[in-house]
């Protein structure tokens, strides 16, 4: 166990012609992203409590939940438009209510709590949340601001470290990744809330990281092989970094997997989205970011030492 590695993903002299599939990759990606955008507008994301406002009460009833009884208990308190839903075990109930124009969501949540415990004595309230309409609008604005600013800062950073062709193709790829993640959220019905914004930002960070590694190698090879056609050079760079790309995505995947399986209601949606994002982010580095760089950089990217003014290049 102390000695040499037992496994590896690909042999060291692997030469897969990834760029042969460049049109295919872009077309598949475009189709998936367009489908995701359509899904985004119709039926649209399921907004979580953070962004929608309203109340959520999670209760564990004594014995199996009696939905008819709970419903009539709520109706007696003039709460008629609540949605009751079983989740997990038969004694787990989830009660939701939209904020609407009602300003006193916090008073409503107390009423619901009381109605439920009175209807089925011995019920424990696991969670009772209320978010007012003004706060949810604010949380949404802040979430989107964080997302937008992160994208912008990633763009600026790559711009500084690489040439603009790299930065632009990376950000286009990131936007495509983002749309697919949205599509994933619509299809799975995972709630879009602040925790999900955190997941998306982590995916963006991870995906950028992956692209930076491939681009780093492209830049290095541009200086090393002055005459190699760009398409072969990008292929070479992807193949050289393939073991690392697969290795790192595997470890992040392995780290997030237990969270998806046992993380509980709060985190499993977050973790599944992360897992999806890792797969998308890894494949997009190879099939989207690289071809985009090829199209944008053909005949334009600087080669060799004579045309390498960027001080960053001396370091690597």
């Amino acid at each position: 166990m102390f000695g040499r590695p037992l496994l590896r993903f690909v042999r060291k002299d692997t030469q897969i012609n990834f760029m042969r599939g460049r049109y295919m990759g872009l077309i598949v990606s475009a189709v998936l992203s367009i489908a995701s955008i359509i899904l985004f507008f119709h039926p649209g994301l399921t907004l979580g409590l953070d962004f929608r406002g309203g109340i959520v009460v999670e209760a564990k009833t004594s014995g199996p939940a009696d939905f008819a009884k709970l419903r009539s208990a709520l109706a007696a308190q003039h709460i008629s438009h609540a949605s009751l839903q079983a989740f997990g075990a038969p004694d787990d109930v989830l009660i939701r209510l939209d904020a609407g124009d009602d300003q006193n969501t916090d008073a409503v949540v107390d009423t619901v709590r009381r109605a439920v415990t009175e209807a089925q004595p011995g019920t424990t309230i696991l969670r009772a949340d209320a978010v007012g309409a003004s706060v949810s609008a604010e949380l949404f604005r802040n979430g989107m601001l964080a997302l937008g600013l992160s994208l912008a800062m990633i763009l600026v950073y790559i711009w500084f470290r690489f040439e603009w062709e790299f930065a632009l193709s990376a950000v286009i790829t990131l936007v495509l990744d983002l749309t697919k993640t949205m599509g994933f959220l619509v299809i799975t019905g995972f709630e879009f809330d602040l925790v999900m914004v955190a997941a998306i930002l982590t995916i963006l960070g991870y995906s950028t990281n992956d692209k930076v590694v491939v681009y780093d190698r492209v830049r290095e090879n541009l200086r090393k092989y002055r005459t190699m056609p760009l398409i072969d050079l990008i292929n070479l760079s992807i193949n050289e970094t393939l073991n690392r790309t697969l290795g790192t995505s595997s470890t992040v995947f392995l780290a997030a997997l237990p969270l998806a399986l046992w993380g509980g209601a709060t985190l499993s949606g977050f973790a599944w989205t992360m897992l999806f994002g890792i797969v998308v982010g890894t494949s997009s580095s190879i099939f989207i970011a690289a071809p985009l760089l090829l199209f944008m950089g053909e005949g334009r990217l600087k080669r060799g030492a004579k045309a390498g003014p960027a001080p960053a290049q001396q370091k690597s």
Partner: peptide, 16 residues
């Protein structure tokens, strides 16, 4: 690669 991840999460800390 760590710098980009750092930037993304500082944003999240500020606005989250």
């Amino acid at each position: 690669s760590n710098a980009t991840a750092f930037l993304a999460h500082v944003m999240l800390f500020v606005f989250g």
